[in-house]
Nucleic acid binder design. Structure first.
Lengths: 213, 213
DNA sequence: GTCTATAACTCGATAGAC
DNA sequence: GTCTATCGAGTTATAGAC
């Protein structure tokens, strides 16, 4: 069946593509118009200004990115289950939307005020989600379910291992002369490695291992 | 003793700061002029165009970033020693230059041709360094010195854990309401965690651990 | 070498015909 | 709603005085 897009959807799709791949400053209204198959005047007619369009796209992407994290972090699983879910969820999401993290990071860097305003405005608050996860990690550490690890460190490790490969993918593809498809295959095969690494890190006493080296 | 900068150095320092923090598209020649304490005309007199200035800065940063990786990867240490050196070196370098990775990644994404040209031009080739490390990893896997791990995966894990926290630092600082100094302290305390995690991953048989869970 | 003034150009935004 | 033409602000780059 043929998906019939109306003009507004065409523009939004084009804007998504251009803004997420080039960022705000480098994006041209004419790029978006061309991508949507029309002229600049028309996209101004629908969305008034470049700023307003960007806000719409940013808010949408921001929501996608943090809604899924929050839902995993605030579920009632234990820490280890959340770790597994986070890593799998990131991979699924980023394979569909590989430009997402860099887009959000660059947008936040360009105007942190904007980020703060959005986190306050949305009912999905990454701040709250992270905070409740912190508390849970501390609790499980005290109970001896996982090793003594700082919540910050655990989150940083998960996000780093999941997100960075997508952020740096073009450089990697270039350095190793491989296509995006091949690269994504490598990443898919890597998921279980990442899960194992993070989980093992949670149950291993590093001092014991050091002695045996 | 007072470091006397001449005009050219003043401009380059200003350009470094502005380009690495804003990226090419968002940087303004007037930002650089103001940062250097002079007017636009003068920076054009010295460096002709925005493009040429950016090329100089990019090439310089690129060199810094890959020279240090290459020197670690092509040393005659074994894989485990290289892992430790890589992680420590990244941290030291990035604490001094936290905008470096995002700057390079964005520049490479904006024009991959440029990246390819540079890697060919420089005598320091990341491609070669990575390739020789791949071979070494495969050799040590065959010898049983480390577990059966794909070289790609190992490199991705190291780079992810080391670089991502700097790339996403502003978002983290915002989410957790902490200053850059506090954040860098967290990262410094995290180094040994990262080293342990990657090293343990190299010597652990995941199947055995899975059974005991 | 360094400045002020201004040319040349890019690009977001609007006017107005259809 | 959609288009062509054009305005006008913002930026890079140059001319020319000192």
């Amino acid at each position: 069946m043929l998906e019939q897009e109306n003009t507004e959807e065409k523009i939004l799709n084009a804007a998504r593509k251009v803004f997420t791949s080039k960022g705000y400053a480098a994006a041209r209204m004419d790029d978006i118009a061309k991508e949507a198959g029309m002229n600049r005047a028309l996209i101004h007619y629908y969305f008034r200004s470049k700023d307003k369009m960007f806000q719409i796209i940013f808010e949408e992407k921001f929501r996608i990115f943090f809604l899924s994290i929050s839902s995993v972090l605030t579920s009632d699983n234990d820490v280890k289950e959340k770790v597994v879910n986070l890593i799998r969820m990131y991979f699924e999401q980023l394979i569909e939307n590989p430009d997402l993290p860099l887009f959000i990071i660059n947008a936040v860097n360009a105007s942190p005020e904007n980020f703060i305003k959005l986190t306050n405005k949305l009912n999905v608050s990454p701040k709250e989600a992270f905070k409740s996860f912190h508390i849970q990690v501390q609790k499980e550490v005290e109970e001896g379910k996982i090793r003594n690890i700082k919540p910050y460190v655990l989150i940083l490790n998960i996000l780093s291992l999941s997100i960075f490969p997508f952020i740096a993918r073009k450089m990697f593809m270039n350095i190793n002369n491989i296509s995006e498809t091949e690269y994504f295959e490598i990443l898919e095969n890597r998921i279980e490695d990442v899960i194992n690494m993070v989980l093992n890190d949670l149950i291993i006493d590093n001092n014991k291992l050091k002695d045996s080296k």
